[in-house]
Nucleic acid binder design. Sequence first.
DNA 1: TGAGCCATGTAAACGGTTACATGATTCC
DNA 2: GGAATCATGTAACCGTTTACATGGCTCA
Lengths: 178, 178
Amino acid sequence: MLGMLRLGASSGYAIKKATDVSTRFFWPTSLAQVYPELARLQQAGLVSRSEDPQGARARSAYEITEEGQVALLDWLRSALKAPMQFRDEGVLRLFLADALSGEEQLVLVRRLRERTEAAEAQMRGEILPVAEALRQSGAKFPELVAHLGADTHTYVIDWLKELEEQLLAEAPRAGSES
Amino acid sequence: MLGMLRLGASSGYAIKKATDVSTRFFWPTSLAQVYPELARLQQAGLVSRSEDPQGARARSAYEITEEGQVALLDWLRSALKAPMQFRDEGVLRLFLADALSGEEQLVLVRRLRERTEAAEAQMRGEILPVAEALRQSGAKFPELVAHLGADTHTYVIDWLKELEEQLLAEAPRAGSES
DNA sequence: TGAGCCATGTAAACGGTTACATGATTCC
DNA sequence: GGAATCATGTAACCGTTTACATGGCTCA
């Protein structure tokens, strides 16, 4: 939250929009999360709130306070305890794919690859451009992270392609219907 | 669950242990999840339960029923709707690392790499051997998935190493204290 | 004899998502 | 005029984790 404010978002709505085009793949948010959290941060003195109406439409503009700056830096400098967690039904299916026939295994791997390709395309098409724009305003890490995500996905796609070829070599008739 | 039973686990405790050395990185479980779920599956007729005491210590042995086999296959063949979700505080910190000084950025990247190396080591040291053992009993996909995970982590590690070098080149004095 | 593992469960807490509710503005 | 977007919130639900509770077995 604090980090997003720092990068230029001001309203709760804007923060949500910003995460959708930047951290979505490794730190998604929802509005139902953002608004209460902003209220908490305000009460803790880490952000300040000011009314910023657009015509008759209400809007609250938030700004990070000096205390908030300190808290953000403290967090960034602290040891990270939370282990990376990732939960993926697709990989779980692959893990259990021995229960399927050769043809079905190939279908599964293909679907997995296509899904990964879709994610990669979104990263390169939607997220990377936004991150590149942020670089103009002095932040280089969003772009680095976008590249890390996109490149890693490319790696997985290639890995899955190789697996597909391997499976095809074992059961050549499996690929004919596609 | 059903898949784990298929791979040889029988008791709830054994299922939990099995996931700890196989699907832990992409599908963790806890005992508080496993026992109620087994009860639900039993009531749904997808698994059968039989008492299998070890001396005076009670143990329940579960087996997958034919209905359970069908349900497992149906699921494996169905279209996957749940998008891959992964949530990582480490990457989030990297995304916001512009708030830090050059030295601190390097420390952060190093910590990230070390953490990734630890995960990779666990995959190669703990999970891969178990998956290789499963291959002897006819299941090849656990090993494939273990390799996918380990290789992907290796890729990320190399990526982070390059980033470290890049950061060092920009601020040469940053690496001196290590 | 004590630590650690095997074994089974329940209850409370937590983090997050979905659905609900409302209303203004903009653009086609 | 209607759809999409901007904008703010609340309430219910859901899956998961942590803590609690119990007890037998094994090995040093």
